[in-house]
Nucleic acid binder design. Structure first.
Lengths: 226, 226
DNA sequence: TGTACATCAGTGAACGCGCGTTCACTGATGTAC
DNA sequence: TGTACATCAGTGAACGCGCGTTCACTGATGTAC
């Protein structure tokens, strides 16, 4: 990843084994869930003794933290590169489908981030920073050509509660849009990934798109005047 | 629960201890998460020896299954009684706030049902049946006075993929509404319960209401004609 | 009302298991002169 | 280019722990006559 140019053979070897450990970790998470992640089991799968892994990760928590960090980074990268391809739909719709693709490619990676948290675990600051970057990407995309909508109580509230947006210049309506975008996407996606649509017979992709289209479609001037 | 009238003292005692075990189980889930549920730990907390619990539950899985069943039943009951109070808002809005209240009262109970599933666990049929009841309650509520909306591709799809609705007479637009209702509520609620809004500074209740209001508000005749 | 017996709740010992983690060690790889 | 030393990857034994679960047993509670 970093400084591959000046890396010694030993450093490159270390990096490779660390990556290999993570690969097996993901594989194990996929079959037994994140909370059952075991260093010993990973070692066995790699044909090594358990203690060997302590050369690479100080303990179990450090490995999990790095998995979470990687997941956030991967999602942020995906969003960033999608946003840059504005021509091919870098707007909210493009981001939505990028997230969906990313999540379906590896459901456990999505769920590790946005699924039920392990009680007591607290992510380090640098991870919080990446999730803030993701929020910024959403705000950027939500800023482009927002459809006119009547002002809601939430818009009003957000005008005074926008710390989470940092110094992003987005107006309240855009903040609202970004939050709706996030929760709608997550609503469909997390139920789909958790298997709650299994056996229901309809295509989750259409529901996903419908929720997205609804967010992007225009509204009557003011619902209060009806 | 059942047959309290003809229950012998011994039966009543058994039922009481079973209930007490479940209470401690919920308490433990709240602090350590569902995957770490341990019969031994519950026994210790109750001042009993570990093997004693095997008088009441055949094994760990049976206990977890009953917790899940109870959770589904409790949610279904809450929805049902809310739906009956039509005067006080038994419609979708009423149900939404009932779900939210129910979830906030005990976040782990909501997450046990709708959170990240334990890989490999498969719920028995009677639980699936309760979740079908919940779906029916949603469909009933969604059927009442639906606002006119332009037909979407999803509506079209649902007309031909409605097995999950059983023999409910709801038209496609209502099916669509019920699904949107479900995913939007879950989207806001699950992110809130998982702590993803923590530190963002806005009031999740307002976002919840905004998502709901948007679902219930009218639409322009046809967005394709703009 | 009292005795004999059956039922059942709960105990303590024991099983095998896998976990995270520490430690002293071996042997291979890289570095300095 | 060759030798002496330092670094470091990986091992095997060991630690204490808590887990689910089985089993033979004790003692209390309920039942039948």
């Amino acid at each position: 990843m970093a400084d591959t140019g000046t890396a010694t053979p030993r450093e490159r070897y270390r990096a490779q084994i660390r990556a290999e450990i993570k690969e097996h970790a993901w594989q194990q998470i996929a079959t037994t869930g994140a909370s059952a992640l075991s260093l010993n089991a990973i070692a066995k799968q790699m044909g090594m003794s358990g203690p060997a892994l302590y050369r690479y990760y100080a303990n179990r928590d450090e490995l999990i933290t790095e998995l979470i960090r990687d997941a956030y980074r991967s999602l942020a990268d995906t969003l960033r590169s999608t946003a840059e391809k504005a021509a091919e739909g870098g707007g909210l719709a493009g981001l939505a489908h990028a997230v969906r693709g990313w999540a379906l490619r590896d459901p456990q990676r999505y769920l590790l981030i946005y699924g039920t948290p392990v009680p007591g675990y607290h992510a380090p600051d640098d991870i919080t920073a990446i999730s803030a970057q993701i929020m910024t990407l959403l705000l950027d995309a939500a800023s482009a050509a927002p459809p006119r909508r009547p002002e809601t109580p939430l818009d009003h509230h957000l005008a005074a509660h926008r710390d989470w947006a940092g110094d992003h210049p987005a107006p309240p309506a855009v903040l609202h849009r970004a939050l709706s975008f996030w929760t709608r996407i997550h609503g469909v996606l997390s139920l789909e990934l958790a298997g709650h649509f299994a056996g229901m017979g309809f295509d989750p992709a259409l529901l996903f798109t419908a929720e997205l289209d609804d967010l992007l479609s225009p509204r009557p001037a003011d619902p209060l005047t009806r």
